[in-house]
């Protein structure tokens, strides 16, 4: 007897397993009043330098920790640890993004109860990390002017999912021949609701507006957790 093919309806999201883990992460973070930020960009946009500058502005106010995602090396974690901040390095080997399970495992090495802000620096990549929810509250995309004004148009999915877009290296705008306003308008086109900050983490220009915004977000998050208890 020849087998007869039978069609079975499935209707399951392919990323379902990751989303379930992300949901569990998100509940854990909400329960602790912990703000978790997923920091993403192309390689070389200046994520780690920006992170260092952000930490310096906030570390007197909040208890911080960082998860670093890279294919290889713990160089970025070392840079963060040099600031006296707890940092955990995830090396993904060949995997081009962090997923919710990697973050859940990394949480074992943190005192999650004693934190106000956890920053996850994703693997430098504007494509893959867009699809993998980690359970974060804030998705922050860094885009440097040196990459040219068209990046948001070329990688619309990543920019579309951002809550915040940080336009970095504005001190290099003239040298790169890039109009910062044009880049900001291109971000707006694919991500009309994102908050946009123009800054340079190296010179410090525009950093205060961003760090004050983030400081408020951390405070509101902690407050929301106390109110809901």
């Amino acid at each position: 007897m020849q087998p007869v093919p039978e069609r079975i309806s499935v209707q399951t999201n392919v990323l379902n397993a990751n989303q379930q883990t992300a949901l569990a992460n998100r509940e854990l973070f909400a329960d602790r009043g912990l703000l978790v930020m997923n920091l993403m960009s192309a390689p070389g946009a200046g994520k780690t330098t920006l992170l260092e500058a952000t930490i310096k502005a906030l570390q007197g106010h909040f208890r911080l920790a960082v998860i670093e995602g890279d294919l290889q090396t713990d160089l970025d974690a070392q840079r963060i640890q040099a600031l006296g901040v707890r940092a955990h390095q995830i090396t993904t080997g060949t995997v081009c993004h962090l997923d919710a399970r990697m973050v859940a495992r990394a949480l074992d090495s943190f005192p999650v109860d004693d934190l106000d802000l956890l920053i996850i620096e994703n693997v430098g990549n504007l494509i893959c990390p867009a699809s993998f929810d980690l359970g974060e509250s804030l998705r922050v995309v860094v885009c440097s002017v040196a990459e040219g004004p068209e990046k948001p148009k070329k990688y619309p999915v990543m920019f579309n999912k951002a809550n915040v877009v940080l336009i970095n290296k504005i001190d290099l705008a003239d040298a790169s021949g890039v109009d910062v306003k044009e880049l900001a308008a291109n971000v707006r086109e694919v991500s009309p609701k994102a908050a946009i900050f123009e800054l340079s983490s190296r010179t410090g220009q525009g950093m205060a507006a961003w760090t004050q915004w983030l400081q408020q977000a951390v405070e509101m998050r902690a407050l929301a957790a106390t109110v809901s208890v």
């Binding site: 007897m1 087998p3 007869v4 093919p5 039978e6 069609r7 079975i8 309806s9 499935v10 209707q11 399951t12 999201n13 392919v14 990323l15 699809s131 579309n160 009309p192 609701k193």
Partner: peptide
């Protein structure tokens, strides 16, 4: 005004066809 995405973000297994034995 901002546009909302109605479709285009799908990544879903719709069905499978199996050997019904």
């Amino acid at each position: 005004f901002p546009l909302e995405i109605v479709s285009g973000e799908e990544l879903q297994i719709d069905y499978i066809e199996v050997d019904s034995e």
